[in-house]
């Protein structure tokens, strides 16, 4: 792979990698650092690229491993409080939309953030990024069964909380 191919094929995945790293780290600067490191690793390992069937899933897996390493080195078991971290309302919605969806979105952000790490990652990979189960297996280094179980639990935990709001108006 030459530099041009790298620029055209690998680099556009940066936002996906960034969002994934952000899910782990909860800090944009840290996430950016991780993405940078991922790209450098991918470039240095480009000779093995032809052995990799799905390079994007491969990149995502490196992102995951590096993010976990970083969490370990920061001795931070938990991501940062959601108020200061992944706030989807920032600059992604028009003012009109944000007034309308403000509360719902905030609640859902909290629900997802409250999920166990594996579930949170898997629901992100499937429902936000739209990866296939096989790709998720590869990224998370889990078998199909574990992926499905975790996704099922994640979706239903969120669903349960959503119905609770409906029932009790929380």
């Amino acid at each position: 792979m030459n530099q041009e191919a790298f620029q055209n094929r690998v680099l556009p995945a940066k936002n996906k990698l960034f969002r994934f790293a952000l899910k782990f780290l909860g800090n944009e600067e840290e996430a950016k650092d991780v993405v940078q490191e991922v790209f450098i690793r991918v470039w240095n390992g480009r000779d093995q690229m032809h052995e990799v069937q799905n390079w994007e899933a491969w990149c995502m897996r490196i992102t995951r491993n590096l993010s976990l390493d970083r969490i370990r080195s920061l001795t931070r078991k938990q991501t940062q409080p959601i108020e200061s971290s992944f706030d989807v309302r920032q600059e992604t919605l028009t003012p009109h939309e944000s007034t309308e969806a403000h509360e719902d979105m905030q609640r859902i952000t909290q629900f997802i953030a409250a999920l166990p790490e594996k579930q949170r990652q898997i629901i992100h990979l499937r429902d936000v990024e739209g990866y296939s189960y096989n790709e998720i297996c590869e990224i998370m280094e889990l078998d199909m069964n574990q992926v499905k179980v975790n996704l099922f639990r994640a979706r239903n935990a969120v669903r349960e909380k959503l119905t609770k709001i409906n029932a009790y108006g929380l």
Binding site: K14, N15, R19, K32, T92, M105, I108, D127, L162
Partner: peptide, 21 residues
């Protein structure tokens, strides 16, 4: 279905988050 809609909208909005650099 409003609450479910919010969940799907959340997924959609989350995907718009990008590396701002």
């Amino acid at each position: 279905l409003k609450d479910t809609a919010a969940l799907f909208q959340y997924f959609d909005v989350s995907k718009k988050k990008s590396l701002n650099d």
